[in-house]
């Protein structure tokens, strides 16, 4: 065994005998690589397609409510289907929370890659701007089940309900679990209001009216309603043009 009382002669030797110093210096070195590669992406205009094609984002986000609810509980939409990428409504957001809680992202990605087979199977390739209001994004890469980035509108609401309760009743070969309990729980309106405020604090453009109408929008809705609502809007917010080269 070496003599333990020898003083380290150099920085190198000090790191060799002090695991904590080694960890700190390793973290510093690694963060240089991370900073150099990641930070510029947040600043560069090319990262997000809506800098060049502003029409893919809903122009009135944050100025007007996405949807309001009158006293009779009837929703009135300011945003029209295909009107551009916008923040999620309180109900869609509740569905998104359930999507994350149930771990849907472990088997389903939300990122259509720019290949011919992906285009035919799922639709137009995903744009970065399409998930600009996602915190966090759900891109993923593991596809035990199919990609869901453009699942919105492909199946009926009733299909989704049945499929979530008992997937094998519709797709016999499916390996997806049953989610029968989504029928039994209701969405908490006050909680969704707090959630919307939280998202606004980090820069998601919600209008005051969006936040005010949140409890009315989710009133009496089950978790299944919310999740189906979320799935049906995925990939449908912006209408993408086949002939436009959104990315080089």
């Amino acid at each position: 065994m070496a003599d333990h009382n020898v003083k380290p002669k150099s920085f190198q030797e000090r790191m060799e005998v002090n695991i904590w110093l080694l960890l700190v210096v390793t973290a510093l070195v690694l963060s240089v690589g991370g900073l150099v590669e990641i930070v510029p992406l947040f600043v560069m205009k090319d990262t997000m397609e809506h800098h060049r094609y502003p029409e893919i984002v809903w122009a009135k986000a944050g100025q007007e409510a996405i949807v309001t609810v009158d006293e009779a509980g009837k929703p009135a939409w300011n945003w029209k289907a295909g009107g551009g990428v916008r923040p999620y409504t309180a109900l869609e957001l509740a569905g998104r929370d359930i999507y994350q809680r149930e771990g849907c992202y472990l088997c389903h990605s939300q990122m259509v890659r720019p290949f011919r087979d992906e285009k035919e199977r799922y639709g137009h390739y995903s744009l970065a701007s399409e998930s600009m209001f996602d915190h966090p994004m759900q891109w993923g890469s593991k596809r035990t089940g199919p990609d869901l980035a453009r699942v919105g509108g492909k199946y009926s609401d009733e299909w989704h309900r049945q499929h979530l309760r008992a997937p094998r009743s519709l797709v016999p070969e499916s390996v997806m679990p049953n989610y029968p309990w989504l029928d039994d729980a209701y969405v908490d309106g006050k909680k969704m209001q707090v959630h919307l405020r939280g998202l606004r604090a980090i820069g998601v453009p919600y209008a005051d009216a969006d936040i005010e109408s949140a409890p009315a929008l989710v009133e009496g809705k089950t978790e299944l309603d919310a999740l189906v609502n979320y799935l049906q809007v995925l990939g449908t917010m912006a209408v993408l043009n086949e002939s436009t080269a959104y990315r080089e």
Binding site: F115, D117, R121, T144, P146, E173, V175
Partner: peptide, 20 residues
């Protein structure tokens, strides 16, 4: 399987066939 095409140039398999 995901990227296989048939003679007509359409996708040869559905997603669930790859699961199976």
């Amino acid at each position: 399987m995901w990227r296989a095409y048939d003679e007509y140039g359409t996708l040869a398999y559905t997603f669930v066939e790859s699961v199976d």
